[in-house]
Amino acid sequence: MILRLGLSPRMLHTSDIRPGQSARLLQVGGERSFRRRLMELGFLPGTSVRLVRRVAVGDLVEFEVRGGHISLRASEAVALVFESSR
């Protein structure tokens, strides 16, 4: 199933999402302990996540998930793959 989605054109990366826009998570990747931590914070596939802002100075991205606001480095947020709403 993951393979099929991997080829799907409906995948979005963090860089494709505008600030203020929400998207549904499709996959959580990255190194195991990072992935586990993200999932425990609520970044689970199927969850709706809002990209709050990009912090240009620090090169971070702020997400809202389950009422909490979490910032990740833009380079590390590539672990999150979203589903296009259309």
Partner: peptide, 10 residues
């Protein structure tokens, strides 16, 4: 380098 996860409290 360890990935950064930073909570932004209100």
């Amino acid at each position: 380098s360890v990935p950064l996860i930073l909570e932004m409290p209100p």
